[in-house]
Amino acid sequence: MNDTTVARLDAAVKRYGPLTALDGVDLAVRRGELLALLGPNGAGKSTSISLLLGLIRPDTGRAELFGLDPQRIEARRRIGVMLQSANLPPTLRVGELLRLTMSYYPNPRGCDETAALAGIADLLLRPYGRLSGGQQRRVQFALALCGRPELLFLDEPTVGMDIDARQKLWTAMRALVAEGCAVVLTTHYLEEAEALAQRVVVLGRGCVLSAGSVDDLRKRVALTRIRCVSELDTEAVAGWPNVASATREDGHLRIATAQAEAVVRRLLDADPALGELEVQRAGLAEAFTELTRDAVEAADTDQREAA
């Protein structure tokens, strides 16, 4: 094992009855990196995190935290956790919750430092149950980072936060990563992954669809899509310089390219009858949709073939 890996899944399979939640997932989190885990609902994000936290056991394969079984308390003393939903005791004050959680760790951050980082200094004396949803999420974030963890799990941390609170949380996450803390982030907001992550793993139907740096993923999607009605030969167009791919679907010629201007100019020259020209720039969101849709379609085809 590489000693810069802080957490990993190794061919992890998890089934719930007839449903396969994870189907042989390999995942490695490296020291000090922010890894975003993306995928539609039911893709296996939460199952992956539960395995890494030792909340559930893989049916086959392995889950490791700092090279140990995640259920070992020595491993969990080095992590911080913010789960998607946790009803904390409503009658306890924020400061008391913080003090309790800090007591679990060998070398926690100070109360003031934690509160400042998470932006909850003004909430310490308030009962948890009286806070707004967004404030509660900030308190949960504070509980996650108060133990001075080397690895932080954040499951959908910014759900229910307004834009301002979200920006503050991003700043705090960046500060933690700068300290050398690794972060595993699951999110529905792609701009969040784009803004923060060094590496993005896309899950779909319990499998890893893509894994790479944000730049890799962006490159994959930095392509512009051109769509038009044209009689030009698809294979010939595919051979043009700067053309990444050309296909024909529903009578439309579809081209992916990194140099849309040059390709459009050549298209118009080559086919004066060309019509319905559309040029569209793909973002991370689009690539993501495409990636996961491909997976769904492939799965559907498999099922049809199997039937």
Partner: peptide
């Protein structure tokens, strides 16, 4: 750079048990 195993001093371990009991009592008394 591979970090040393973190050990929990005995005092802090006892403290964690006490904190847990204290929180549990407080939350229900309230």
């Amino acid at each position: 750079t591979s970090a040393p195993a973190v050990s929990m001093p005995r005092r802090r371990l006892v403290g964690a048990y006490l904190e847990e009991a204290r929180s549990e009592c407080l939350r229900y008394l309230r």
